[in-house]
Design a protein around this nucleic acid. Structure first.
Ligand SMILES: NC(=O)c1ccc[n+]([C@@H]2O[C@H](COP(=O)([O-])OP(=O)(O)OC[C@H]3O[C@@H](n4cnc5c(N)ncnc54)[C@H](O)[C@@H]3O)[C@@H](O)[C@H]2O)c1
Ligand SMILES: NC(=O)c1ccc[n+]([C@@H]2O[C@H](COP(=O)([O-])OP(=O)(O)OC[C@H]3O[C@@H](n4cnc5c(N)ncnc54)[C@H](O)[C@@H]3O)[C@@H](O)[C@H]2O)c1
Lengths: 208, 208
DNA sequence: ATAACATTGTTAATGAAATAACATTATCTT
DNA sequence: AAGATAATGTTATTTCATTAACAATGTTAT
Protein backbone atom coordinates (compact mmCIF):
# COMPACT_ATOMS: atom_id res chain seq x y z
CA UNK A 1 0.00 0.00 0.00
CA UNK A 2 2.64 2.38 1.02
CA UNK A 3 4.75 3.59 -1.80
CA UNK A 4 2.18 5.09 -4.09
CA UNK A 5 1.39 8.69 -3.30
CA UNK A 6 -2.03 9.25 -1.84
CA UNK A 7 -4.32 11.94 -3.25
CA UNK A 8 -3.95 15.34 -1.69
CA UNK A 9 -7.45 15.46 -0.36
CA UNK A 10 -7.25 11.99 1.08
CA UNK A 11 -4.23 12.99 3.11
CA UNK A 12 -6.08 15.99 4.49
CA UNK A 13 -8.92 13.77 5.55
CA UNK A 14 -6.61 11.23 7.12
CA UNK A 15 -5.36 13.94 9.43
CA UNK A 16 -8.93 14.78 10.34
CA UNK A 17 -9.89 11.15 10.81
CA UNK A 18 -7.04 10.72 13.19
CA UNK A 19 -8.01 13.68 15.30
CA UNK A 20 -11.63 12.59 15.45
CA UNK A 21 -10.55 9.06 16.34
CA UNK A 22 -8.30 10.24 19.12
CA UNK A 23 -11.27 11.93 20.76
CA UNK A 24 -13.35 8.88 20.07
CA UNK A 25 -11.02 6.47 21.86
CA UNK A 26 -10.41 9.00 24.62
CA UNK A 27 -14.15 8.78 25.21
CA UNK A 28 -13.74 5.05 25.78
CA UNK A 29 -14.80 3.66 22.39
CA UNK A 30 -13.04 0.95 20.46
CA UNK A 31 -14.63 0.25 17.11
CA UNK A 32 -16.21 2.58 14.61
CA UNK A 33 -18.28 2.13 11.45
CA UNK A 34 -17.65 4.11 8.33
CA UNK A 35 -20.93 5.95 8.72
CA UNK A 36 -20.06 6.95 12.27
CA UNK A 37 -16.66 8.28 11.34
CA UNK A 38 -18.26 10.01 8.39
CA UNK A 39 -20.78 11.76 10.57
CA UNK A 40 -18.06 13.06 12.89
CA UNK A 41 -16.63 14.91 9.90
CA UNK A 42 -19.91 15.60 8.12
CA UNK A 43 -18.90 13.73 5.03
CA UNK A 44 -20.22 10.58 3.38
CA UNK A 45 -19.47 7.01 4.46
CA UNK A 46 -18.30 6.11 0.95
CA UNK A 47 -15.69 8.76 1.13
CA UNK A 48 -14.43 7.29 4.37
CA UNK A 49 -14.34 3.76 3.02
CA UNK A 50 -12.60 4.82 -0.11
CA UNK A 51 -9.89 6.68 1.79
CA UNK A 52 -9.37 3.72 4.08
CA UNK A 53 -9.19 1.43 1.12
CA UNK A 54 -6.47 3.61 -0.36
CA UNK A 55 -4.29 3.24 2.70
CA UNK A 56 -4.75 -0.50 2.62
CA UNK A 57 -6.42 -0.95 5.96
CA UNK A 58 -9.46 -3.15 6.28
CA UNK A 59 -12.09 -3.31 8.93
CA UNK A 60 -14.36 -6.15 9.82
CA UNK A 61 -17.84 -6.62 8.63
CA UNK A 62 -19.57 -6.68 11.94
CA UNK A 63 -17.46 -4.28 13.95
CA UNK A 64 -16.24 -1.79 11.42
CA UNK A 65 -12.77 -0.38 12.02
CA UNK A 66 -10.60 -0.74 15.07
CA UNK A 67 -10.08 2.88 16.04
CA UNK A 68 -6.68 2.37 17.62
CA UNK A 69 -5.33 0.39 14.69
CA UNK A 70 -6.57 3.04 12.33
CA UNK A 71 -4.90 5.76 14.34
CA UNK A 72 -1.65 3.85 14.18
CA UNK A 73 -1.82 3.26 10.46
CA UNK A 74 -2.49 6.92 9.83
CA UNK A 75 0.47 7.71 12.05
CA UNK A 76 2.69 5.45 9.98
CA UNK A 77 1.60 7.29 6.87
CA UNK A 78 1.86 10.85 8.07
CA UNK A 79 4.47 10.89 10.79
CA UNK A 80 8.12 10.11 10.59
CA UNK A 81 9.88 8.11 13.24
CA UNK A 82 11.12 11.07 15.25
CA UNK A 83 8.49 13.58 14.23
CA UNK A 84 9.30 16.20 11.68
CA UNK A 85 10.70 19.45 12.97
CA UNK A 86 9.11 22.75 12.10
CA UNK A 87 10.33 26.34 12.17
CA UNK A 88 8.26 29.52 12.19
CA UNK A 89 9.69 32.57 10.48
CA UNK A 90 8.22 35.92 11.53
CA UNK A 91 7.04 36.08 15.10
CA UNK A 92 4.28 38.66 14.70
CA UNK A 93 0.68 38.16 15.70
CA UNK A 94 0.08 35.30 13.34
CA UNK A 95 3.36 33.53 13.98
CA UNK A 96 2.87 33.63 17.73
CA UNK A 97 -0.70 32.45 17.51
CA UNK A 98 0.34 29.48 15.41
CA UNK A 99 3.13 28.64 17.81
CA UNK A 100 0.75 28.72 20.73
CA UNK A 101 -1.76 26.62 18.90
CA UNK A 102 0.54 23.84 17.80
CA UNK A 103 2.65 23.58 20.92
CA UNK A 104 -0.23 22.31 22.97
CA UNK A 105 -1.29 19.62 20.53
CA UNK A 106 -0.63 15.92 20.42
CA UNK A 107 0.93 15.68 17.03
CA UNK A 108 4.29 14.21 16.27
CA UNK A 109 5.47 17.35 14.62
CA UNK A 110 7.09 19.91 16.82
CA UNK A 111 8.04 23.50 16.38
CA UNK A 112 11.63 23.69 17.47
CA UNK A 113 12.74 27.14 16.38
CA UNK A 114 11.41 30.57 15.55
CA UNK A 115 13.15 33.31 13.58
CA UNK A 116 12.69 37.05 13.38
CA UNK A 117 14.75 40.06 12.33
CA UNK A 118 13.55 42.32 15.09
CA UNK A 119 16.12 42.44 17.84
CA UNK A 120 13.45 42.94 20.49
CA UNK A 121 12.18 39.49 19.67
CA UNK A 122 15.31 37.42 19.18
CA UNK A 123 16.87 35.51 22.06
CA UNK A 124 13.53 35.28 23.78
CA UNK A 125 11.30 32.28 24.18
CA UNK A 126 7.72 32.13 22.86
CA UNK A 127 5.41 29.29 23.84
CA UNK A 128 8.49 27.40 24.90
CA UNK A 129 10.23 27.90 21.57
CA UNK A 130 13.49 29.84 21.24
CA UNK A 131 13.54 32.72 18.78
CA UNK A 132 16.76 33.30 16.85
CA UNK A 133 17.85 36.07 14.56
CA UNK A 134 16.96 35.30 10.99
CA UNK A 135 20.65 35.55 10.07
CA UNK A 136 21.22 32.25 11.84
CA UNK A 137 18.43 30.50 10.00
CA UNK A 138 20.47 28.35 7.63
CA UNK A 139 22.82 27.30 10.39
CA UNK A 140 20.08 26.30 12.82
CA UNK A 141 17.85 24.59 10.28
CA UNK A 142 20.73 22.37 9.27
CA UNK A 143 21.91 21.77 12.78
CA UNK A 144 18.45 20.84 14.08
CA UNK A 145 17.38 18.93 10.99
CA UNK A 146 14.30 21.08 10.47
CA UNK A 147 12.34 20.01 7.40
CA UNK A 148 9.26 22.26 7.38
CA UNK A 149 8.90 26.03 7.72
CA UNK A 150 5.98 28.35 8.26
CA UNK A 151 6.38 31.79 6.71
CA UNK A 152 4.57 34.56 8.55
CA UNK A 153 6.60 37.61 7.64
CA UNK A 154 5.20 40.58 5.72
CA UNK A 155 4.74 40.04 2.00
CA UNK A 156 7.73 42.14 1.01
CA UNK A 157 10.05 39.86 2.93
CA UNK A 158 8.50 36.55 2.00
CA UNK A 159 10.35 35.95 -1.25
CA UNK A 160 13.74 36.52 0.32
CA UNK A 161 12.88 34.34 3.30
CA UNK A 162 11.69 31.54 1.04
CA UNK A 163 14.92 31.62 -0.94
CA UNK A 164 16.92 31.32 2.24
CA UNK A 165 14.77 28.44 3.43
CA UNK A 166 15.30 26.59 0.18
CA UNK A 167 19.02 27.16 0.45
CA UNK A 168 18.94 25.76 3.95
CA UNK A 169 17.44 22.57 2.59
CA UNK A 170 13.86 22.94 3.81
CA UNK A 171 11.51 20.40 2.24
CA UNK A 172 8.09 21.90 2.90
CA UNK A 173 6.90 25.50 3.16
CA UNK A 174 3.64 26.80 4.52
CA UNK A 175 3.26 30.36 3.32
CA UNK A 176 0.80 32.68 5.03
CA UNK A 177 2.04 35.83 3.43
CA UNK A 178 -0.06 37.17 0.58
CA UNK A 179 2.89 37.01 -1.77
CA UNK A 180 2.84 33.98 -4.11
CA UNK A 181 6.09 32.08 -3.91
CA UNK A 182 8.07 30.09 -6.39
CA UNK A 183 10.07 27.13 -5.15
CA UNK A 184 11.92 24.26 -6.79
CA UNK A 185 9.86 21.19 -7.42
CA UNK A 186 11.53 19.22 -4.67
CA UNK A 187 10.04 21.57 -2.10
CA UNK A 188 6.38 21.11 -1.25
CA UNK A 189 4.62 24.46 -1.06
CA UNK A 190 1.30 25.19 0.57
CA UNK A 191 -0.04 28.71 0.42
CA UNK A 192 -2.96 30.11 2.29
CA UNK A 193 -4.38 33.56 2.41
CA UNK A 194 -7.21 34.45 4.70
CA UNK A 195 -8.38 37.45 2.73
CA UNK A 196 -8.67 35.39 -0.43
CA UNK A 197 -10.79 32.88 1.41
CA UNK A 198 -12.96 35.58 2.95
CA UNK A 199 -13.49 37.07 -0.48
CA UNK A 200 -14.46 33.70 -1.79
CA UNK A 201 -17.00 33.37 0.98
CA UNK A 202 -18.26 36.83 0.14
CA UNK A 203 -18.80 35.81 -3.47
CA UNK A 204 -20.75 32.69 -2.63
CA UNK A 205 -22.78 34.48 0.00
CA UNK A 206 -23.88 36.89 -2.71
CA UNK A 207 -24.91 33.95 -4.87
CA UNK A 208 -26.90 32.14 -2.22
CA UNK B 1 -21.77 36.52 -17.74
CA UNK B 2 -22.87 37.26 -14.29
CA UNK B 3 -25.56 34.98 -13.10
CA UNK B 4 -23.93 31.64 -13.51
CA UNK B 5 -21.87 30.63 -10.50
CA UNK B 6 -18.16 30.67 -11.10
CA UNK B 7 -16.02 27.70 -10.13
CA UNK B 8 -14.68 27.76 -6.62
CA UNK B 9 -11.07 27.86 -7.66
CA UNK B 10 -11.65 30.59 -10.18
CA UNK B 11 -13.10 32.81 -7.48
CA UNK B 12 -10.04 32.26 -5.31
CA UNK B 13 -7.80 33.24 -8.15
CA UNK B 14 -9.86 36.32 -8.96
CA UNK B 15 -9.16 37.57 -5.46
CA UNK B 16 -5.47 36.97 -6.01
CA UNK B 17 -5.50 38.59 -9.44
CA UNK B 18 -7.07 41.66 -7.96
CA UNK B 19 -4.48 41.98 -5.26
CA UNK B 20 -1.64 41.51 -7.70
CA UNK B 21 -3.20 44.04 -10.06
CA UNK B 22 -3.60 46.61 -7.34
CA UNK B 23 0.13 46.47 -6.71
CA UNK B 24 0.73 46.52 -10.42
CA UNK B 25 -1.19 49.73 -11.02
CA UNK B 26 0.20 51.26 -7.84
CA UNK B 27 3.59 50.77 -9.47
CA UNK B 28 2.42 52.92 -12.39
CA UNK B 29 1.47 50.23 -14.91
CA UNK B 30 -1.65 50.20 -17.03
CA UNK B 31 -1.90 47.11 -19.21
CA UNK B 32 -0.94 43.55 -18.54
CA UNK B 33 -0.63 40.39 -20.63
CA UNK B 34 -1.94 37.06 -19.49
CA UNK B 35 1.58 35.70 -19.17
CA UNK B 36 2.61 38.61 -17.00
CA UNK B 37 -0.31 38.27 -14.65
CA UNK B 38 0.30 34.53 -14.61
CA UNK B 39 3.89 34.95 -13.60
CA UNK B 40 2.92 37.22 -10.70
CA UNK B 41 0.98 34.29 -9.29
CA UNK B 42 3.23 31.53 -10.56
CA UNK B 43 0.50 29.92 -12.57
CA UNK B 44 0.03 29.40 -16.30
CA UNK B 45 -1.19 32.01 -18.79
CA UNK B 46 -3.94 29.67 -20.01
CA UNK B 47 -5.35 29.51 -16.54
CA UNK B 48 -5.47 33.28 -16.42
CA UNK B 49 -7.14 33.60 -19.80
CA UNK B 50 -9.65 30.94 -18.99
CA UNK B 51 -10.63 32.60 -15.73
CA UNK B 52 -10.95 35.96 -17.44
CA UNK B 53 -13.04 34.38 -20.15
CA UNK B 54 -15.37 33.00 -17.49
CA UNK B 55 -16.04 36.44 -16.07
CA UNK B 56 -16.75 37.79 -19.52
CA UNK B 57 -14.03 40.37 -19.73
CA UNK B 58 -11.93 40.66 -22.84
CA UNK B 59 -8.58 42.24 -23.39
CA UNK B 60 -7.06 43.52 -26.57
CA UNK B 61 -4.70 41.68 -28.79
CA UNK B 62 -1.81 44.00 -28.65
CA UNK B 63 -2.09 45.40 -25.17
CA UNK B 64 -3.53 42.56 -23.16
CA UNK B 65 -5.85 43.51 -20.32
CA UNK B 66 -6.51 46.94 -18.90
CA UNK B 67 -5.50 46.44 -15.29
CA UNK B 68 -7.89 49.01 -13.87
CA UNK B 69 -10.86 47.67 -15.77
CA UNK B 70 -10.06 44.18 -14.65
CA UNK B 71 -9.83 45.29 -11.04
CA UNK B 72 -13.25 46.89 -11.36
CA UNK B 73 -14.85 43.85 -12.93
CA UNK B 74 -13.49 41.61 -10.22
CA UNK B 75 -14.85 44.06 -7.68
CA UNK B 76 -18.29 43.85 -9.25
CA UNK B 77 -18.14 40.10 -8.94
CA UNK B 78 -16.82 39.75 -5.43
CA UNK B 79 -17.90 42.85 -3.56
CA UNK B 80 -21.33 44.06 -2.73
CA UNK B 81 -22.28 47.69 -3.01
CA UNK B 82 -21.58 48.58 0.59
CA UNK B 83 -19.07 45.88 1.38
CA UNK B 84 -20.09 42.85 3.32
CA UNK B 85 -19.82 43.06 7.05
CA UNK B 86 -17.87 40.50 9.02
CA UNK B 87 -17.84 39.46 12.67
CA UNK B 88 -15.14 37.58 14.54
CA UNK B 89 -16.21 35.26 17.34
CA UNK B 90 -13.53 34.38 19.87
CA UNK B 91 -10.94 37.07 20.47
CA UNK B 92 -8.01 34.87 21.42
CA UNK B 93 -4.63 34.88 19.72
CA UNK B 94 -5.95 33.83 16.39
CA UNK B 95 -9.02 36.08 16.40
CA UNK B 96 -6.97 39.14 17.28
CA UNK B 97 -4.35 38.38 14.67
CA UNK B 98 -7.00 38.08 12.00
CA UNK B 99 -8.61 41.32 13.08
CA UNK B 100 -5.30 43.10 12.93
CA UNK B 101 -4.55 41.65 9.55
CA UNK B 102 -7.78 42.51 7.83
CA UNK B 103 -8.35 45.93 9.31
CA UNK B 104 -5.36 47.39 7.53
CA UNK B 105 -6.27 46.06 4.12
CA UNK B 106 -7.96 47.66 1.16
CA UNK B 107 -10.80 45.27 0.73
CA UNK B 108 -14.43 46.18 0.68
CA UNK B 109 -15.24 43.81 3.48
CA UNK B 110 -14.95 45.16 6.95
CA UNK B 111 -14.92 43.59 10.35
CA UNK B 112 -17.47 45.52 12.33
CA UNK B 113 -17.88 43.47 15.48
CA UNK B 114 -16.10 40.98 17.69
CA UNK B 115 -17.63 38.67 20.27
CA UNK B 116 -16.24 36.83 23.26
CA UNK B 117 -17.57 35.30 26.44
CA UNK B 118 -14.71 36.41 28.63
CA UNK B 119 -15.72 39.48 30.57
CA UNK B 120 -12.16 40.80 30.56
CA UNK B 121 -12.42 41.13 26.82
CA UNK B 122 -15.91 42.45 26.23
CA UNK B 123 -16.57 46.17 25.98
CA UNK B 124 -13.06 46.78 24.84
CA UNK B 125 -11.84 47.71 21.40
CA UNK B 126 -9.38 45.61 19.38
CA UNK B 127 -7.79 46.91 16.20
CA UNK B 128 -10.54 49.51 16.17
CA UNK B 129 -13.30 46.94 16.47
CA UNK B 130 -15.68 46.80 19.43
CA UNK B 131 -15.92 43.53 21.29
CA UNK B 132 -19.34 42.55 22.63
CA UNK B 133 -20.44 39.76 24.89
CA UNK B 134 -21.43 36.71 22.92
CA UNK B 135 -24.92 36.91 24.46
CA UNK B 136 -25.59 39.95 22.32
CA UNK B 137 -24.50 38.26 19.14
CA UNK B 138 -27.88 37.68 17.51
CA UNK B 139 -29.02 41.17 18.32
CA UNK B 140 -25.95 42.89 16.94
CA UNK B 141 -25.59 40.72 13.85
CA UNK B 142 -29.13 41.60 12.86
CA UNK B 143 -28.83 45.23 13.76
CA UNK B 144 -25.59 45.72 11.85
CA UNK B 145 -26.53 43.51 8.93
CA UNK B 146 -23.49 41.29 9.33
CA UNK B 147 -23.43 38.49 6.78
CA UNK B 148 -20.15 36.66 7.41
CA UNK B 149 -18.61 35.31 10.61
CA UNK B 150 -15.19 33.99 11.52
CA UNK B 151 -15.20 31.36 14.27
CA UNK B 152 -12.05 31.30 16.38
CA UNK B 153 -13.29 29.87 19.64
CA UNK B 154 -12.05 26.57 21.11
CA UNK B 155 -13.39 23.44 19.47
CA UNK B 156 -15.77 22.60 22.30
CA UNK B 157 -17.60 25.88 21.81
CA UNK B 158 -17.64 25.96 18.05
CA UNK B 159 -20.78 23.93 17.46
CA UNK B 160 -22.84 26.06 19.80
CA UNK B 161 -21.47 29.27 18.34
CA UNK B 162 -22.24 28.10 14.81
CA UNK B 163 -25.83 27.30 15.73
CA UNK B 164 -26.28 30.76 17.16
CA UNK B 165 -24.76 32.33 14.07
CA UNK B 166 -27.12 30.43 11.83
CA UNK B 167 -30.05 31.53 13.97
CA UNK B 168 -28.88 35.08 13.66
CA UNK B 169 -29.10 34.78 9.89
CA UNK B 170 -25.41 34.64 9.01
CA UNK B 171 -24.81 33.62 5.39
CA UNK B 172 -21.18 32.57 5.42
CA UNK B 173 -19.00 31.00 8.10
CA UNK B 174 -15.25 30.71 8.20
CA UNK B 175 -14.40 28.10 10.81
CA UNK B 176 -10.87 27.92 12.22
CA UNK B 177 -11.70 25.61 15.06
CA UNK B 178 -10.71 22.00 14.57
CA UNK B 179 -14.29 20.86 15.06
CA UNK B 180 -16.12 20.07 11.82
CA UNK B 181 -19.38 21.97 11.59
CA UNK B 182 -22.71 21.20 10.05
CA UNK B 183 -24.76 24.06 8.67
CA UNK B 184 -27.88 24.35 6.55
CA UNK B 185 -27.27 24.46 2.83
CA UNK B 186 -28.13 28.12 2.56
CA UNK B 187 -25.06 28.95 4.64
CA UNK B 188 -21.69 28.82 2.93
CA UNK B 189 -19.13 27.11 5.12
CA UNK B 190 -15.38 27.26 4.77
CA UNK B 191 -13.27 25.29 7.21
CA UNK B 192 -9.56 25.50 7.68
CA UNK B 193 -7.29 23.80 10.09
CA UNK B 194 -3.63 24.59 10.25
CA UNK B 195 -2.59 21.31 11.82
CA UNK B 196 -4.30 19.33 9.10
CA UNK B 197 -2.42 21.33 6.51
CA UNK B 198 0.88 20.92 8.32
CA UNK B 199 0.33 17.20 8.50
CA UNK B 200 -0.39 17.15 4.81
CA UNK B 201 2.86 18.95 4.17
CA UNK B 202 4.60 16.43 6.42
CA UNK B 203 3.24 13.58 4.36
CA UNK B 204 4.36 15.00 1.03
CA UNK B 205 7.73 15.96 2.42
CA UNK B 206 8.24 12.31 3.31
CA UNK B 207 7.34 11.35 -0.24
CA UNK B 208 9.65 13.80 -1.96
C1' DA C 1 0.25 43.65 -49.88
C1' DT C 2 1.67 39.59 -47.69
C1' DA C 3 3.83 36.70 -44.55
C1' DA C 4 5.34 36.02 -39.89
C1' DC C 5 4.30 36.82 -35.22
C1' DA C 6 2.31 37.31 -30.73
C1' DT C 7 -1.59 37.34 -28.32
C1' DT C 8 -6.42 36.47 -27.16
C1' DG C 9 -10.67 33.51 -26.65
C1' DT C 10 -12.74 29.03 -27.04
C1' DT C 11 -13.26 24.26 -27.59
C1' DA C 12 -11.33 19.71 -26.72
C1' DA C 13 -8.70 16.47 -23.90
C1' DT C 14 -6.86 14.99 -19.72
C1' DG C 15 -6.48 14.47 -14.88
C1' DA C 16 -8.15 14.56 -10.07
C1' DA C 17 -11.80 14.09 -6.79
C1' DA C 18 -16.26 12.74 -5.39
C1' DT C 19 -20.15 9.90 -5.84
C1' DA C 20 -22.73 6.01 -7.20
C1' DA C 21 -23.30 1.24 -8.11
C1' DC C 22 -22.63 -3.10 -6.88
C1' DA C 23 -20.49 -7.48 -5.55
C1' DT C 24 -18.99 -9.80 -1.32
C1' DT C 25 -19.32 -11.56 3.24
C1' DA C 26 -20.01 -12.31 8.27
C1' DT C 27 -23.77 -12.47 11.37
C1' DC C 28 -28.43 -12.96 12.83
C1' DT C 29 -33.12 -14.84 12.43
C1' DT C 30 -36.20 -18.23 11.54
C1' DA D 1 -29.60 -24.61 6.89
C1' DA D 2 -31.43 -20.76 4.15
C1' DG D 3 -32.54 -16.20 3.65
C1' DA D 4 -32.34 -11.47 5.18
C1' DT D 5 -29.46 -7.91 6.75
C1' DA D 6 -25.96 -4.64 7.29
C1' DA D 7 -21.73 -3.78 6.76
C1' DT D 8 -17.19 -3.54 3.84
C1' DG D 9 -14.21 -3.11 -0.44
C1' DT D 10 -13.91 -2.17 -5.31
C1' DT D 11 -15.05 -0.77 -9.79
C1' DA D 12 -17.60 2.46 -12.74
C1' DT D 13 -19.47 6.94 -13.47
C1' DT D 14 -19.89 11.68 -12.93
C1' DT D 15 -18.37 16.09 -11.77
C1' DC D 16 -14.96 19.52 -11.27
C1' DA D 17 -10.41 21.60 -12.46
C1' DT D 18 -6.47 22.03 -15.30
C1' DT D 19 -4.01 21.74 -19.42
C1' DA D 20 -3.59 21.44 -24.27
C1' DA D 21 -4.88 22.54 -28.89
C1' DC D 22 -6.12 25.63 -32.05
C1' DA D 23 -8.70 29.18 -34.61
C1' DA D 24 -9.12 34.21 -34.93
C1' DT D 25 -7.02 38.68 -35.22
C1' DG D 26 -4.44 42.87 -35.01
C1' DT D 27 0.56 44.44 -35.65
C1' DT D 28 5.00 44.50 -37.55
C1' DA D 29 8.40 43.51 -40.98
C1' DT D 30 9.55 42.83 -45.61
N1 LIG E 1 -2.45 38.11 11.03
C1 LIG E 1 -3.13 37.29 10.28
O1 LIG E 1 -4.14 36.74 10.67
C2 LIG E 1 -2.67 36.96 8.96
C3 LIG E 1 -3.46 36.15 8.23
C4 LIG E 1 -3.03 35.80 6.97
C5 LIG E 1 -1.86 36.27 6.53
N2 LIG E 1 -1.12 37.08 7.26
C6 LIG E 1 0.14 37.51 6.72
O2 LIG E 1 1.15 36.92 7.48
C7 LIG E 1 2.23 37.82 7.62
C8 LIG E 1 2.44 38.11 9.08
O3 LIG E 1 1.28 38.63 9.65
P1 LIG E 1 1.30 39.25 11.10
O4 LIG E 1 -0.05 39.72 11.37
O5 LIG E 1 1.91 38.30 12.04
O6 LIG E 1 2.29 40.47 10.88
P2 LIG E 1 3.25 41.19 11.93
O7 LIG E 1 3.71 42.45 11.33
O8 LIG E 1 2.62 41.18 13.26
O9 LIG E 1 4.51 40.20 12.05
C9 LIG E 1 5.51 40.11 11.11
C10 LIG E 1 6.78 39.64 11.83
O10 LIG E 1 7.77 39.33 10.88
C11 LIG E 1 9.01 39.86 11.31
N3 LIG E 1 9.86 40.05 10.14
C12 LIG E 1 9.81 41.02 9.21
N4 LIG E 1 10.74 40.83 8.26
C13 LIG E 1 11.39 39.69 8.59
C14 LIG E 1 12.44 38.97 7.99
N5 LIG E 1 13.02 39.36 6.86
N6 LIG E 1 12.87 37.85 8.60
C15 LIG E 1 12.30 37.44 9.75
N7 LIG E 1 11.29 38.08 10.36
C16 LIG E 1 10.84 39.20 9.78
C17 LIG E 1 8.66 41.14 12.01
O11 LIG E 1 9.68 41.52 12.92
C18 LIG E 1 7.38 40.71 12.73
O12 LIG E 1 7.68 40.14 13.97
C19 LIG E 1 1.86 39.01 6.80
O13 LIG E 1 2.35 38.81 5.48
C20 LIG E 1 0.39 38.98 6.73
O14 LIG E 1 0.02 39.58 5.52
C21 LIG E 1 -1.49 37.44 8.49
N1 LIG F 1 -3.94 29.94 17.17
C1 LIG F 1 -3.91 29.46 15.95
O1 LIG F 1 -3.04 29.71 15.15
C2 LIG F 1 -4.97 28.57 15.52
C3 LIG F 1 -4.85 28.03 14.29
C4 LIG F 1 -5.84 27.23 13.82
C5 LIG F 1 -6.89 26.99 14.61
N2 LIG F 1 -6.99 27.49 15.83
C6 LIG F 1 -8.17 27.22 16.57
O2 LIG F 1 -8.88 28.42 16.70
C7 LIG F 1 -9.48 28.50 17.96
C8 LIG F 1 -8.96 29.68 18.69
O3 LIG F 1 -7.57 29.63 18.80
P1 LIG F 1 -6.78 30.65 19.72
O4 LIG F 1 -5.36 30.28 19.64
O5 LIG F 1 -7.17 32.05 19.41
O6 LIG F 1 -7.37 30.24 21.18
P2 LIG F 1 -7.56 31.15 22.47
O7 LIG F 1 -7.82 30.25 23.58
O8 LIG F 1 -6.44 32.12 22.54
O9 LIG F 1 -8.87 32.01 22.17
C9 LIG F 1 -10.15 31.54 22.26
C10 LIG F 1 -11.07 32.70 22.58
O10 LIG F 1 -12.43 32.30 22.47
C11 LIG F 1 -13.15 32.81 23.58
N3 LIG F 1 -14.32 31.98 23.79
C12 LIG F 1 -14.39 30.76 24.37
N4 LIG F 1 -15.64 30.30 24.33
C13 LIG F 1 -16.39 31.23 23.72
C14 LIG F 1 -17.76 31.32 23.39
N5 LIG F 1 -18.62 30.36 23.66
N6 LIG F 1 -18.17 32.42 22.75
C15 LIG F 1 -17.32 33.41 22.45
N7 LIG F 1 -16.03 33.39 22.76
C16 LIG F 1 -15.56 32.30 23.39
C17 LIG F 1 -12.17 32.81 24.72
O11 LIG F 1 -12.56 33.73 25.71
C18 LIG F 1 -10.88 33.23 24.00
O12 LIG F 1 -10.78 34.62 23.96
C19 LIG F 1 -9.18 27.18 18.63
O13 LIG F 1 -10.21 26.29 18.30
C20 LIG F 1 -7.95 26.70 17.96
O14 LIG F 1 -7.97 25.32 18.00
C21 LIG F 1 -6.06 28.30 16.30
Amino acid sequence: MINKKLPDKTVERLSMYRRALLNYVAAGNHHIFSHELASLLHITPVQVRRDIMLIGYTGTLRQGYDAKELIDIIGKIIDTREGQKVAVVGIGNLGRSIMGYISGKRTKMSIVAAFDNNSDKVDRVYAGIPCYHVDRMVEIIKQEGISIAVISVPGEEAVKVAETLVMAGIKGIFNFSPRPLNVPSHVYLQEYDIITMLEKIAYFVKKI
